[in-house]
Amino acid sequence: MIWQLDLFILGMIVVCALASIMVKDLMSAAIIFGAYSFLMCLLWTEMGSVDVAFTEAPVGAGVGTVFFIAAVFRTSRHVSRRSEGRLGMKFLGLLGAFMTGLLLMTGVHDFPGWADPNSPASQHVSTYYITKTIEDTSVPNIVTSVLADYRGFDTMFETAVIFTAGIAVTLILRRLGGGGGSHSVSGPAYTTTAGYPDTIIRFISRQLVPFMQLYALYVVAHGHHSPGGGFQGGVILGASFILLGISYDLKTTLNRISERANIALGNLGVLIYAGIGVVCLLLGANFLDYSALSKLLPGATEITARSHGMLGIEIGVAIAVMAIMVSIYVNLASHGKHDEGL
Protein backbone atom coordinates (compact mmCIF):
# COMPACT_ATOMS: atom_id res chain seq x y z
CA MET A 1 0.00 0.00 0.00
CA ILE A 2 2.17 2.84 -1.28
CA TRP A 3 -0.01 5.89 -1.68
CA GLN A 4 2.34 7.72 -4.06
CA LEU A 5 2.11 4.79 -6.47
CA ASP A 6 -1.64 4.69 -5.97
CA LEU A 7 -2.01 8.36 -6.91
CA PHE A 8 0.23 8.01 -9.93
CA ILE A 9 -1.48 4.92 -11.35
CA LEU A 10 -4.96 6.32 -10.75
CA GLY A 11 -3.97 9.51 -12.57
CA MET A 12 -2.71 7.50 -15.53
CA ILE A 13 -5.92 5.46 -15.51
CA VAL A 14 -8.09 8.55 -15.82
CA VAL A 15 -5.90 9.82 -18.68
CA CYS A 16 -6.23 6.48 -20.49
CA ALA A 17 -9.99 6.39 -19.96
CA LEU A 18 -10.39 9.89 -21.40
CA ALA A 19 -8.06 9.11 -24.30
CA SER A 20 -9.86 5.90 -25.24
CA ILE A 21 -13.22 7.62 -25.54
CA MET A 22 -11.86 10.78 -27.23
CA VAL A 23 -9.70 9.21 -29.94
CA LYS A 24 -11.32 9.03 -33.38
CA ASP A 25 -9.74 5.80 -34.56
CA LEU A 26 -11.49 2.78 -33.04
CA MET A 27 -8.45 0.51 -33.31
CA SER A 28 -6.44 3.03 -31.29
CA ALA A 29 -9.30 3.22 -28.81
CA ALA A 30 -9.16 -0.56 -28.37
CA ILE A 31 -5.39 -0.52 -27.83
CA ILE A 32 -5.59 2.37 -25.35
CA PHE A 33 -8.30 0.46 -23.55
CA GLY A 34 -5.91 -2.48 -23.31
CA ALA A 35 -3.32 -0.19 -21.73
CA TYR A 36 -6.01 1.04 -19.36
CA SER A 37 -6.70 -2.56 -18.28
CA PHE A 38 -3.01 -3.16 -17.78
CA LEU A 39 -2.75 -0.10 -15.52
CA MET A 40 -5.75 -1.44 -13.62
CA CYS A 41 -3.82 -4.65 -13.17
CA LEU A 42 -0.94 -2.69 -11.61
CA LEU A 43 -3.40 -0.90 -9.37
CA TRP A 44 -4.87 -4.16 -8.06
CA THR A 45 -1.41 -5.47 -7.29
CA GLU A 46 -0.60 -2.25 -5.50
CA MET A 47 -3.70 -2.66 -3.32
CA GLY A 48 -2.78 -6.24 -2.46
CA SER A 49 -5.47 -7.99 -4.45
CA VAL A 50 -3.19 -10.27 -6.44
CA ASP A 51 -5.94 -12.60 -7.59
CA VAL A 52 -7.91 -9.76 -9.14
CA ALA A 53 -4.74 -8.51 -10.83
CA PHE A 54 -4.05 -11.97 -12.15
CA THR A 55 -7.56 -12.12 -13.58
CA GLU A 56 -7.36 -8.64 -15.07
CA ALA A 57 -4.08 -9.36 -16.87
CA PRO A 58 -5.26 -12.17 -19.19
CA VAL A 59 -8.94 -11.14 -19.25
CA GLY A 60 -8.97 -7.35 -19.48
CA ALA A 61 -5.65 -6.60 -21.08
CA GLY A 62 -5.48 -9.81 -23.13
CA VAL A 63 -8.69 -11.44 -24.31
CA GLY A 64 -10.87 -8.32 -23.92
CA THR A 65 -8.60 -6.30 -26.18
CA VAL A 66 -8.55 -9.12 -28.73
CA PHE A 67 -12.37 -9.16 -28.75
CA PHE A 68 -12.44 -5.41 -29.36
CA ILE A 69 -9.90 -5.68 -32.16
CA ALA A 70 -11.82 -8.55 -33.76
CA ALA A 71 -15.06 -6.56 -33.66
CA VAL A 72 -13.46 -3.39 -35.03
CA PHE A 73 -11.71 -5.41 -37.72
CA ARG A 74 -15.00 -6.91 -38.83
CA THR A 75 -16.90 -3.61 -38.90
CA SER A 76 -15.46 -0.17 -39.52
CA ARG A 77 -12.43 1.44 -38.04
CA HIS A 78 -13.32 5.11 -38.20
CA VAL A 79 -15.85 7.17 -36.33
CA SER A 80 -17.82 9.25 -38.79
CA ARG A 81 -17.15 12.97 -38.57
CA ARG A 82 -20.61 13.92 -39.75
CA SER A 83 -22.23 13.19 -36.43
CA GLU A 84 -19.97 15.50 -34.47
CA GLY A 85 -22.51 18.27 -34.48
CA ARG A 86 -25.03 16.89 -32.03
CA LEU A 87 -24.22 19.39 -29.34
CA GLY A 88 -27.57 19.11 -27.59
CA MET A 89 -27.13 15.41 -26.91
CA LYS A 90 -23.55 15.94 -25.79
CA PHE A 91 -24.58 18.65 -23.40
CA LEU A 92 -27.36 16.47 -21.98
CA GLY A 93 -24.97 13.58 -21.50
CA LEU A 94 -22.42 15.80 -19.81
CA LEU A 95 -25.10 17.24 -17.55
CA GLY A 96 -26.38 13.77 -16.61
CA ALA A 97 -22.90 12.50 -15.90
CA PHE A 98 -22.05 15.56 -13.82
CA MET A 99 -25.23 15.36 -11.77
CA THR A 100 -24.60 11.69 -11.02
CA GLY A 101 -20.98 12.45 -10.21
CA LEU A 102 -21.93 15.31 -7.91
CA LEU A 103 -24.37 13.09 -6.06
CA LEU A 104 -21.68 10.43 -5.57
CA MET A 105 -19.06 13.03 -4.59
CA THR A 106 -21.22 14.16 -1.69
CA GLY A 107 -21.34 10.53 -0.58
CA VAL A 108 -17.55 10.14 -0.75
CA HIS A 109 -17.14 12.34 2.30
CA ASP A 110 -18.83 9.72 4.49
CA PHE A 111 -16.72 6.77 3.33
CA PRO A 112 -14.12 5.37 5.71
CA GLY A 113 -10.64 6.41 4.63
CA TRP A 114 -8.79 4.37 2.05
CA ALA A 115 -6.90 1.43 3.61
CA ASP A 116 -8.47 2.04 7.01
CA PRO A 117 -8.14 -1.25 8.95
CA ASN A 118 -11.31 -0.45 10.92
CA SER A 119 -13.59 0.19 7.96
CA PRO A 120 -16.94 -1.64 8.20
CA ALA A 121 -16.13 -3.78 5.15
CA SER A 122 -13.22 -5.36 7.01
CA GLN A 123 -15.11 -6.03 10.22
CA HIS A 124 -17.76 -8.66 9.93
CA VAL A 125 -17.65 -11.74 7.77
CA SER A 126 -14.22 -11.14 6.27
CA THR A 127 -12.46 -11.62 9.61
CA TYR A 128 -14.09 -15.04 9.84
CA TYR A 129 -12.80 -15.98 6.40
CA ILE A 130 -9.27 -14.84 7.20
CA THR A 131 -8.93 -16.53 10.57
CA LYS A 132 -10.77 -19.79 9.82
CA THR A 133 -9.71 -20.71 6.30
CA ILE A 134 -6.79 -22.95 7.35
CA GLU A 135 -8.81 -24.50 10.14
CA ASP A 136 -11.88 -25.18 7.97
CA THR A 137 -10.44 -26.00 4.60
CA SER A 138 -6.62 -26.20 4.80
CA VAL A 139 -6.37 -23.80 1.84
CA PRO A 140 -3.92 -20.92 2.41
CA ASN A 141 -5.21 -18.73 -0.43
CA ILE A 142 -8.24 -17.12 1.20
CA VAL A 143 -9.59 -15.85 -2.10
CA THR A 144 -9.78 -19.40 -3.47
CA SER A 145 -11.42 -20.78 -0.36
CA VAL A 146 -14.06 -18.04 -0.33
CA LEU A 147 -14.59 -18.31 -4.07
CA ALA A 148 -14.94 -22.06 -4.30
CA ASP A 149 -16.19 -23.07 -0.89
CA TYR A 150 -17.77 -20.43 1.34
CA ARG A 151 -19.41 -18.74 -1.62
CA GLY A 152 -19.54 -21.68 -4.01
CA PHE A 153 -23.11 -20.94 -5.11
CA ASP A 154 -22.09 -17.50 -6.35
CA THR A 155 -19.29 -18.89 -8.41
CA MET A 156 -21.41 -21.68 -9.85
CA PHE A 157 -23.89 -19.23 -11.27
CA GLU A 158 -21.12 -16.92 -12.47
CA THR A 159 -19.82 -19.87 -14.46
CA ALA A 160 -23.33 -20.46 -15.75
CA VAL A 161 -23.50 -16.79 -16.82
CA ILE A 162 -20.26 -17.17 -18.79
CA PHE A 163 -21.61 -20.30 -20.44
CA THR A 164 -24.85 -18.50 -21.30
CA ALA A 165 -22.88 -15.62 -22.81
CA GLY A 166 -20.99 -18.06 -25.03
CA ILE A 167 -24.24 -19.63 -26.21
CA ALA A 168 -25.71 -16.17 -26.83
CA VAL A 169 -22.77 -15.12 -29.01
CA THR A 170 -23.10 -18.31 -31.04
CA LEU A 171 -26.85 -17.79 -31.44
CA ILE A 172 -26.46 -14.16 -32.53
CA LEU A 173 -23.61 -14.55 -34.99
CA ARG A 174 -23.41 -18.10 -36.25
CA ARG A 175 -24.31 -18.57 -39.90
CA LEU A 176 -24.07 -22.04 -41.34
CA GLY A 177 -22.73 -22.42 -44.85
CA GLY A 178 -21.48 -18.83 -44.97
CA GLY A 179 -24.48 -17.38 -46.82
CA GLY A 180 -24.27 -13.58 -46.96
CA GLY A 181 -26.60 -11.38 -44.97
CA SER A 182 -28.67 -8.62 -46.48
CA HIS A 183 -25.92 -6.05 -46.00
CA SER A 184 -22.91 -8.29 -46.37
CA VAL A 185 -20.19 -5.68 -46.13
CA SER A 186 -17.31 -6.13 -48.49
CA GLY A 187 -14.63 -7.83 -46.47
CA PRO A 188 -12.56 -6.33 -43.69
CA ALA A 189 -12.67 -2.62 -43.04
CA TYR A 190 -9.19 -1.90 -44.34
CA THR A 191 -6.39 -3.60 -46.20
CA THR A 192 -4.70 -6.30 -44.24
CA THR A 193 -2.15 -8.99 -44.48
CA ALA A 194 -4.68 -11.59 -43.34
CA GLY A 195 -3.49 -15.05 -44.20
CA TYR A 196 -0.04 -13.75 -45.05
CA PRO A 197 2.34 -16.31 -43.60
CA ASP A 198 4.80 -14.42 -41.42
CA THR A 199 7.37 -17.04 -40.52
CA ILE A 200 8.76 -15.34 -37.43
CA ILE A 201 5.36 -14.71 -35.84
CA ARG A 202 4.17 -18.22 -36.64
CA PHE A 203 7.31 -19.85 -35.32
CA ILE A 204 7.27 -17.92 -32.05
CA SER A 205 3.55 -18.51 -31.47
CA ARG A 206 3.96 -22.19 -32.18
CA GLN A 207 6.75 -22.43 -29.63
CA LEU A 208 4.80 -20.38 -27.10
CA VAL A 209 1.54 -22.33 -27.14
CA PRO A 210 2.65 -25.48 -25.24
CA PHE A 211 4.28 -23.39 -22.53
CA MET A 212 1.18 -21.25 -22.18
CA GLN A 213 -0.94 -24.34 -21.78
CA LEU A 214 1.41 -25.89 -19.26
CA TYR A 215 1.44 -22.65 -17.31
CA ALA A 216 -2.36 -22.52 -17.42
CA LEU A 217 -2.55 -26.01 -15.95
CA TYR A 218 -0.11 -24.96 -13.24
CA VAL A 219 -2.26 -21.92 -12.46
CA VAL A 220 -5.36 -24.10 -12.12
CA ALA A 221 -3.67 -26.77 -10.03
CA HIS A 222 -1.78 -24.33 -7.81
CA GLY A 223 -4.64 -21.92 -7.20
CA HIS A 224 -4.92 -23.05 -3.58
CA HIS A 225 -1.45 -21.89 -2.60
CA SER A 226 -0.74 -18.97 -4.88
CA PRO A 227 -2.73 -16.41 -6.86
CA GLY A 228 -4.65 -18.08 -9.63
CA GLY A 229 -7.36 -20.65 -10.04
CA GLY A 230 -9.94 -21.84 -12.48
CA PHE A 231 -10.90 -18.50 -14.01
CA GLN A 232 -7.35 -17.33 -14.64
CA GLY A 233 -6.11 -20.72 -15.84
CA GLY A 234 -9.12 -21.13 -18.10
CA VAL A 235 -8.60 -17.75 -19.73
CA ILE A 236 -4.88 -18.44 -20.30
CA LEU A 237 -5.77 -21.82 -21.81
CA GLY A 238 -8.30 -20.12 -24.07
CA ALA A 239 -5.76 -17.42 -24.96
CA SER A 240 -3.35 -20.10 -26.20
CA PHE A 241 -5.93 -21.26 -28.74
CA ILE A 242 -6.75 -17.65 -29.64
CA LEU A 243 -3.03 -17.03 -30.26
CA LEU A 244 -3.00 -19.95 -32.70
CA GLY A 245 -6.06 -18.49 -34.40
CA ILE A 246 -4.40 -15.08 -34.75
CA SER A 247 -0.98 -16.19 -35.92
CA TYR A 248 -2.21 -18.92 -38.26
CA ASP A 249 -5.90 -18.80 -39.12
CA LEU A 250 -9.16 -19.98 -37.67
CA LYS A 251 -8.97 -23.33 -39.44
CA THR A 252 -5.89 -24.22 -37.39
CA THR A 253 -7.68 -23.45 -34.15
CA LEU A 254 -10.85 -25.23 -35.23
CA ASN A 255 -8.87 -28.32 -36.19
CA ARG A 256 -7.52 -28.48 -32.64
CA ILE A 257 -10.78 -27.65 -30.92
CA SER A 258 -13.89 -27.84 -33.07
CA GLU A 259 -17.07 -25.88 -32.56
CA ARG A 260 -18.89 -28.98 -31.39
CA ALA A 261 -16.12 -29.75 -28.89
CA ASN A 262 -16.23 -26.17 -27.66
CA ILE A 263 -19.90 -26.26 -26.84
CA ALA A 264 -19.58 -29.72 -25.31
CA LEU A 265 -16.64 -28.62 -23.13
CA GLY A 266 -18.53 -25.52 -22.00
CA ASN A 267 -21.38 -27.79 -20.96
CA LEU A 268 -19.00 -30.24 -19.32
CA GLY A 269 -17.35 -27.55 -17.19
CA VAL A 270 -20.61 -26.34 -15.70
CA LEU A 271 -21.71 -29.95 -15.32
CA ILE A 272 -18.56 -30.86 -13.36
CA TYR A 273 -19.21 -27.96 -11.01
CA ALA A 274 -22.87 -28.79 -10.44
CA GLY A 275 -22.11 -32.51 -10.46
CA ILE A 276 -19.72 -32.23 -7.53
CA GLY A 277 -22.47 -30.39 -5.71
CA VAL A 278 -24.93 -33.17 -6.47
CA VAL A 279 -22.42 -35.83 -5.35
CA CYS A 280 -22.20 -34.03 -2.00
CA LEU A 281 -25.97 -34.03 -1.88
CA LEU A 282 -26.09 -37.79 -2.56
CA LEU A 283 -23.56 -38.40 0.22
CA GLY A 284 -25.97 -36.87 2.67
CA ALA A 285 -24.54 -33.36 3.04
CA ASN A 286 -25.61 -29.99 1.72
CA PHE A 287 -25.17 -29.00 -1.91
CA LEU A 288 -21.48 -28.13 -2.49
CA ASP A 289 -20.50 -29.15 1.06
CA TYR A 290 -17.25 -30.83 0.05
CA SER A 291 -16.50 -32.30 3.48
CA ALA A 292 -18.85 -35.15 2.53
CA LEU A 293 -16.39 -36.13 -0.21
CA SER A 294 -14.07 -37.58 2.44
CA LYS A 295 -16.20 -40.72 2.22
CA LEU A 296 -15.19 -41.17 -1.42
CA LEU A 297 -11.59 -39.96 -1.38
CA PRO A 298 -9.20 -42.36 0.31
CA GLY A 299 -6.97 -40.78 2.92
CA ALA A 300 -8.82 -37.50 3.02
CA THR A 301 -10.14 -36.05 6.21
CA GLU A 302 -13.22 -33.84 6.22
CA ILE A 303 -10.95 -30.78 6.07
CA THR A 304 -8.67 -31.84 3.23
CA ALA A 305 -11.70 -33.15 1.33
CA ARG A 306 -12.89 -29.55 1.12
CA SER A 307 -9.59 -28.62 -0.49
CA HIS A 308 -9.90 -31.46 -3.01
CA GLY A 309 -13.50 -30.53 -3.76
CA MET A 310 -12.35 -27.01 -4.55
CA LEU A 311 -9.75 -28.36 -6.96
CA GLY A 312 -12.51 -30.31 -8.71
CA ILE A 313 -14.71 -27.32 -9.26
CA GLU A 314 -11.74 -25.17 -10.30
CA ILE A 315 -11.09 -27.69 -13.06
CA GLY A 316 -14.73 -27.44 -14.11
CA VAL A 317 -14.54 -23.65 -14.17
CA ALA A 318 -11.30 -23.73 -16.18
CA ILE A 319 -12.79 -26.03 -18.83
CA ALA A 320 -15.94 -23.94 -19.18
CA VAL A 321 -14.09 -20.60 -19.34
CA MET A 322 -11.57 -21.90 -21.87
CA ALA A 323 -14.23 -23.26 -24.20
CA ILE A 324 -16.37 -20.14 -24.02
CA MET A 325 -13.47 -17.74 -24.62
CA VAL A 326 -12.39 -19.68 -27.71
CA SER A 327 -15.97 -19.90 -28.95
CA ILE A 328 -16.59 -16.15 -28.54
CA TYR A 329 -13.34 -15.32 -30.31
CA VAL A 330 -14.01 -17.67 -33.21
CA ASN A 331 -17.46 -16.21 -33.76
CA LEU A 332 -16.37 -12.57 -33.45
CA ALA A 333 -13.30 -12.93 -35.64
CA SER A 334 -15.08 -14.67 -38.51
CA HIS A 335 -18.43 -12.89 -38.28
CA GLY A 336 -20.01 -16.23 -37.43
CA LYS A 337 -18.83 -17.90 -40.63
CA HIS A 338 -15.86 -19.80 -39.19
CA ASP A 339 -13.85 -19.37 -42.37
CA GLU A 340 -10.70 -17.29 -42.20
CA GLY A 341 -10.56 -15.12 -39.12
CA LEU A 342 -8.40 -12.08 -38.67
Binding site: M1, L43, W44, M47, G48, S49, V50, D51, V52, F111, P112, W114, A115, D116, P117, S119, A121, S122, S126, I130, P140, N141, I142, V143, H225, S226, P227
Partner: peptide, 13 residues
Protein backbone atom coordinates in the same frame (compact mmCIF):
# COMPACT_ATOMS: atom_id res chain seq x y z
CA UNK B 1 -11.19 -3.28 -4.25
CA UNK B 2 -10.48 0.08 -2.58
CA UNK B 3 -12.83 -0.80 0.27
CA UNK B 4 -10.88 -4.04 0.76
CA UNK B 5 -7.46 -2.39 1.12
CA UNK B 6 -5.91 -2.33 4.59
CA UNK B 7 -2.90 -0.42 5.88
CA UNK B 8 -0.01 -2.61 6.96
CA UNK B 9 -1.63 -5.80 5.68
CA UNK B 10 -0.31 -8.24 3.11
CA UNK B 11 -1.90 -10.19 0.26
CA UNK B 12 -4.70 -12.56 1.33
CA UNK B 13 -2.67 -15.78 1.27
Amino acid sequence: VSTGAKKGATIPI
